[in-house]
Amino acid sequence: MKAIEVENLIKRYGSANVLNGINLTVEKGEVFGFVGHNGAGKSTFIHTLTGITRKSSGSFSILGTPGGELDRVKKKIGVMPDIANLYQHMRGIDFLRYMGNLAGDMRTKRSYEELLEEVGLKGAGGKKIKSYSFGMKKKISIAQALLGDPELIILDEPTSGLDPESAIVVRKMVTRLQEEGKTIFLTSHNLDEIEKVSDRVGILTDGVIKKLGTPRELKAQAEGGVQLAVRTKPVLTAEVVNELKEKSGLNLAFVETKREFTLLQLPSDDELPRLTRALLDGGVDLYEVKVEERSLEDVFMNA
């Protein structure tokens, strides 16, 4: 049984397709990161999966239950939709208790306080939510998603707007939840964070998943091959690189010079020995070579 299975999901607002035929499978126990530009459809996708909005066409199932019978599995899903959805007039602890009751989570008051402490809101349970800072609202929104011991946790940008320390707490929590066997589906604008916590990543552009795979696979797919930073004497210029290219037949490209380093591009790191030989044959002394790993950001920008 898959945690999430989506087939040709379309969500239309008027004549505009916000989700334009999404196909996706998320395995149980997986941390799946969903990234995309603002307005790409990430939140709409979450809203459609969680019953906040209705799909226009296509199909999906959550924990093996078809989307049309979603009510049957709602207690097994924890959702953090957005901080705008909180009851501002309630005290933090009352809000959690109310949400807990709805989720079938009948824990003690002490246990709610422990949950608040876990998300970094120790001692804030007695205050009204309207007095909370943005970060605190985000944290209590995450806390309510964890109520009821859900199997699948869906978090919409859980760390945006959080200070680095709180973001680390959330990341550690995601890792811990995965270790407990939970499936996590999260969206974020922070690609570094997505890369750190996700087993697989989907890049959503204009309502379609353009790239899908593990962070490593995606980076390997990135266009432009391998980028190298070489420290040589003399420092390489574009002219010298062109000369080397002609002489060696290497598919080498000059990118830029950064102080004593020259950035070069090769189709793959298999060409590195040939480049080394070509440099030495060309009378260039090689002191250092660093392979600059492609980031998820490069993948995202090319999606």
Partner: peptide, 14 residues
């Protein structure tokens, strides 16, 4: 209007 309904419908049926 306050979007709290979104929270309710993720926990229980409409």
């Amino acid at each position: 209007e306050m979007k709290t309904m979104r929270l309710l419908v993720t926990k229980t049926s409409r």
